[in-house]
Design a protein around this nucleic acid. Structure first.
Length: 470
DNA sequence: TTTTGAGTTGTTCGA
DNA sequence: GTCGAACAACTCAAA
């Protein structure tokens, strides 16, 4: 899924052949198995496809859009209609897609079509990075060390200046016919927050570089813009990790103050985590639905529908959790630190299976990415690679105080608490009566009481972990 | 094969 | 108020 012209190896190779090129996008959500794009992703996809259509037009080409139950059907149609003798695409690494694309490749090859696929989504191929025993890494630090010792990250390719179209136009569906945009317009917040598309991705990268020196500290602060906010752009391939790698290296090298490049380094490590997530899902394809660590199969999860709903709606009674869940609902995105807090609350305070949380994120995040989502949830739940030790249970109140010290983040998203001062905003249920009254907060009415007591929930979680000890 | 050191992101308790 | 240790045991990765 690479909705960009720059550093797009499949497009580049196709243009290099010198023959006319038919840029084709196939919408075949059934191919994704259980993981067809959710609502927020579909909204983004629509905008990004519109942007791609425009930029292809500026190079003389038209994006052909097709829908099919399976990609092979649409592909075969287009090959028959155009007489194409070669098909190029950029690889995806999700288990269901690897399977599909392998089948497509052998099918087309059988019919004499020259098929070639390329890596544009990752810095390294999952099979390139392995430990001394030749198996995939399951710990991040040695994984990333090995990546950094690889010869080079290849240099990004330029966007083609001109793309030669077929003389006879190829039939295309309209973008609207994919019905990616919601019927009821709930996407206002997303629209106001983001600019999907390749140009938007590069603007975002440039903006981020202005503040990257503060990244190591500010990245943990949801009350300020300290993170790159590139995740949805990366997911849709509007920008690639290799472009980011080289841009950050270059930017870091320009820094004159010694130590300033620390920001770039730290940021690239995070891009490394994205890489790690993709490699892991490739090597352990069952992990999107099942824990990497088998002993977690018998973890005593609870299923409490009303807790699940309270979490989804941002009505748990823990302000930092509720702020995060509402930011997600409103903008299609949540700050990384807050993702950890809400996920820890979900899996440890509520003891609901991590898969349920992953599903909610899948439908509501504009950056929903199977590899990153899987790693993140399994890491928090303690059943994944390099996972958090069982005793690391976030205290939502102290996390709030630590990373949102003035309460600005909570005030932005939980308006009913906006008149509470910093001293009590993360702990309204313990605030004195007169403080609450002065801030127009009536617990249980204007804002919920905590749905679980964190102290008790912590003890309960520790007991649950003790139950699966071998 | 065996051994050794280490492992993104915390919290609580007691000195 | 601050600080360090305990919170288990396991698995991974490398020597």
């Amino acid at each position: 899924m690479d909705l960009r012209l720059e550093d797009n190896p499949a497009l580049h190779a196709a243009v290099q052949r010198g023959a006319p090129v038919v840029p084709l996008y196939i919408w075949s959500p059934k191919d994704e198995g259980e993981w067809a794009p959710g609502g927020a992703s579909k909204y983004w996809l629509h905008q990004s496809l519109a942007a791609l259509t425009a930029s292809l037009e500026s190079r003389g080409a038209t994006l052909v859009i097709r829908t099919a139950p399976s990609a092979i059907d649409a592909l075969t149609d287009v090959i028959n209609e155009t007489g194409a003798d070669a098909v190029y695409w950029n690889r995806r690494y999700e288990p269901a897609i690897v399977k599909r694309d392998t089948a497509i490749k052998s099918e087309l090859t059988k019919h004499g079509i020259a098929v070639e696929s390329f890596n544009s989504a990752l810095m390294f191929e999952p099979w390139e990075i392995k430990n001394k025993q030749g198996s995939p890494f399951q710990v991040f630090t040695p994984f990333w060390k090995t990546c950094l010792n690889m010869p080079t990250v290849s240099t990004p390719l330029p966007a083609p200046k001109q793309i030669t179209p077929l003389t006879k136009p190829v039939k295309s569906q309209s973008l609207a016919s994919l019905e990616l945009e919601p019927r009821i317009d709930w996407a206002k917040g997303i629209r106001e927050t983001w600019t999907p598309g390749e140009a938007g991705a590069h603007d975002q990268l440039t903006r981020f570089f202005d503040t990257i020196a503060a990244y190591p500290e500010d990245r943990d602060r949801p009350d300020c813009i300290g993170t790159s906010r590139l995740s949805p752009h990366l997911h849709f391939g509007e920008i690639g990790p290799r472009q980011i790698w080289h841009a950050a290296r270059q930017h870091g090298a320009l820094a004159t103050t010694p130590g300033v490049a620390r920001g770039e380094e730290k940021f690239l490590t995070e891009v490394g985590w994205r890489e790690f997530a993709h490699h892991l899902l490739f090597h352990f394809p069952h992990t999107a639905g099942k824990p990497l660590r088998q002993n977690f199969e018998k973890f005593p999860w609870l299923r409490n529908k009303s807790h699940l709903r309270a979490w989804q709606k941002g009505l748990t009674g823990y302000p930092i959790v509720d702020a995060g869940m509402r930011e997600l609902w409103h903008t299609g995105w949540m700050h990384n630190r807050v993702r950890m807090i809400v996920a820890s609350f979900f899996t440890k305070d509520l003891l609901i299976p991590w898969q349920e949380g992953a599903k909610w994120f899948w439908d509501t995040l504009v950056d929903a990415d199977l590899a990153s989502n899987t790693l993140g949830w399994q890491w928090t739940a303690g059943c994944g690679a390099d996972a958090a030790p069982y005793f690391r249970i976030f205290n939502p109140t102290s996390q709030g105080i630590k990373f949102d010290p003035n309460g600005d983040y909570v005030r932005t998203w939980v308006s009913e608490l906006s008149r509470l001062d910093a001293k009590w905003i993360h702990d309204p249920s313990n605030a004195p009566e007169d403080v609450l009254r002065a801030a127009d907060v009536v617990l249980g009415k204007t804002y919920p009481k905590p749905i679980v007591d964190h102290g008790e929930a912590r003890v309960r979680a520790l007991e649950a972990f003790a139950a699966i000890k071998s």
